[in-house]
């Protein structure tokens, strides 16, 4: 969706402000939001693409005015509600009024490190051959889906070159809504800075994206 999350190339946000000796978390509540989001994701009630889709669905003014973990908290509550794991009243009061909904898994402290050490790979068996070859010029589609997508606006309609083929991966545009993993070939596609930004762009600059086959047409 063309939401506030799609920030590449936007102006007006000022300089980047690194924080010396930055802590991992800036408040205890951030720690709990991070951990709850991880643990609730582990229950299998939704997937990572769904979490991203929910976060970027915040109204743009709210998204841009919120801290990172504020956005996570908003999205976490929204996903709990949308998946029927709790009611609005229960979230408001912090007390259960109804029995829990069964979940696939519950994260326990003893399995955390081995399970996270393995990770949650999102590559899958391809359903057919790759359409594009390394070195081939492709054009990012002009598309404006109202739902989740991982094709940023700043490359749409631009010509790039396939630099790598990573295999078939879970397709976020459908997986976010539990409409299937639909494995799609994932490519690294490189764009020249001048193709993206015009003649004023940094000479010799390039931007690469990792993007799915359905996002491209042959040049």
């Amino acid at each position: 969706m063309n939401g506030a999350q799609d920030l590449g190339g936007a102006h007006g946000f000022g300089p980047v402000r690194p924080e010396p000796n930055e802590p991992v978390f800036h408040a205890d509540w951030e720690k709990r939001v991070f951990a709850m989001a991880m643990a609730m994701g582990f229950t299998g009630s939704w997937n990572l693409d769904g979490s991203r889709a929910t976060r970027e669905s915040l109204p743009p003014a709210q998204y841009l005015a919120s801290s990172y973990y504020d956005i996570w908290l908003e999205a976490l509550e929204a996903q709990i509600l949308a998946n029927g794991l709790a009611t609005r009243e229960e979230i408001a009061t912090g007390r259960a009024a109804e029995p829990p909904k069964p979940v696939a898994r519950v994260l326990t402290a003893d399995i955390l490190e081995p399970r996270f050490r393995v990770g949650f790979p999102s590559d899958r068996e391809p359903e057919g051959p790759a359409r594009f070859a390394i070195g081939e010029t492709v054009v990012a589609k002009v598309m404006n889906p109202v739902g989740h997508t991982r094709l940023p606006r700043y490359v749409r309609g631009r010509r790039g070159v396939v630099e790598a083929i990573h295999g078939a991966f879970v397709f976020p545009d459908t997986n976010a809504y539990k409409r299937g993993e639909n494995p799609a070939w994932l490519y690294t596609v490189a764009f020249t800075a001048s193709e993206l930004w015009g003649p004023e762009a940094d000479p010799g600059g390039r931007v690469t994206i990792a993007a799915f086959e359905p996002y491209f047409d042959p040049a």
Binding site: G8, S122, D123, R150, L151, P152, H166, F169, V170, P172, L186, A190, D202, G204, G205, R206, V207, T208, I209, A210, A211, F212
Partner: peptide, 9 residues
């Protein structure tokens, strides 16, 4: 400069 935008996994 090459910038790598982490748009997938």
């Amino acid at each position: 400069i090459t910038v790598w935008d982490s748009t997938a996994e």
